[in-house]
Amino acid sequence: MGMISEFKEFIARGNVVDLAVGVVIGAAFGKIVTALVDGIVMPFIGYLSGGVSLGDAKYVLTAAQMDAAGKEVAAEVAIKYGAFVQTAIDFVLIAFVIFLFLKAYNKVRKPADAAPAATPEDIVLLREIRDSLKK
């Protein structure tokens, strides 16, 4: 079998196509949650923190240095932890919504309870012998 035909067989499998669809939907879903965090959650957190945008929060190690003309000579050195916190909130929300989705999906997809296994024939025969001996 040639490499091209093997590749066609690989792509034609359902699980590869399902994975591709999942990646595309996941990327789109990530954009939706990012828009939710950027547009609703973070402004609300900013409002609660007195108008400070959490995404812009940073710890300045060295302030920017200016010359006499007001031109920046050396850039500010800062640890920008606000962007990290915002990305962490994105991740937690995405993970939580996916958890809820999978929980609902598994509840709907739950297989019917399997019928109890039939009693083996030798056990049935032993019970019949026991019952006939009791009489």
Results as ranks from 00 to 15, higher is better:
D56E: 15
L36T: 04
M1T: 07
A27W: 05
F44C: 10
V21W: 00
I98W: 00
A78M: 05
V85M: 12
A64P: 04
I89A: 03
P43D: 12
V33Y: 02
V24I: 15
A112Y: 08
S5K: 12
F44R: 04
A20V: 09
P111A: 07
I4H: 07
K107R: 06
N106M: 10
G26V: 00
A20C: 11
G50F: 04
D90F: 00
D18V: 12
D56K: 15
V41T: 12
V85Y: 07
A104W: 08
Y59M: 12
E9R: 12
A78P: 03
V33T: 10
K8S: 07
K110R: 14
T34I: 06
A115F: 07
R127Q: 14
L54K: 01
F99D: 03
A57F: 11
G14T: 09
V23Y: 01
K80Y: 07
A104D: 06
A20W: 00
Y47S: 13
A68M: 07
A115P: 13
I129S: 10
V85K: 03
G70R: 06
V24Q: 00
A20L: 10
Y105K: 04
D67K: 04
L126T: 14
G2W: 10
I79H: 01
A74E: 05
G26H: 00
V16C: 02
D122K: 15
R127Y: 01
T34S: 10
K80V: 12
Q86H: 01
A117P: 12
I94M: 13
L19R: 10
L93P: 02
V92M: 11
I129K: 14
L61I: 14
V33S: 01
A69T: 13
V60S: 06
F84T: 03
G50R: 09
A95L: 14
A114W: 03
R109K: 13
D18H: 08
A57E: 09
P120Q: 09
V85P: 01
K103G: 02
V23I: 12
F7I: 15
D67R: 04
D90T: 00
V73G: 03
V97M: 13
A74K: 12
G39C: 08
V52Y: 15
I129D: 10
Y105S: 05
V85A: 11
A95R: 10
A115D: 10
R13G: 15
A114P: 08
G22D: 09
G51P: 07
A75M: 08
D18C: 04
T87R: 07
V124I: 15
Y47E: 08
V60M: 03
Q86K: 11
V108W: 06
V73D: 00
I4K: 09
T34P: 00
S53Q: 15
G70F: 12
L48H: 10
A74V: 08
M42V: 12
D113W: 02
L93S: 02
L100M: 11
G46S: 15
G14I: 05
V85T: 08
A118C: 05
I32S: 03
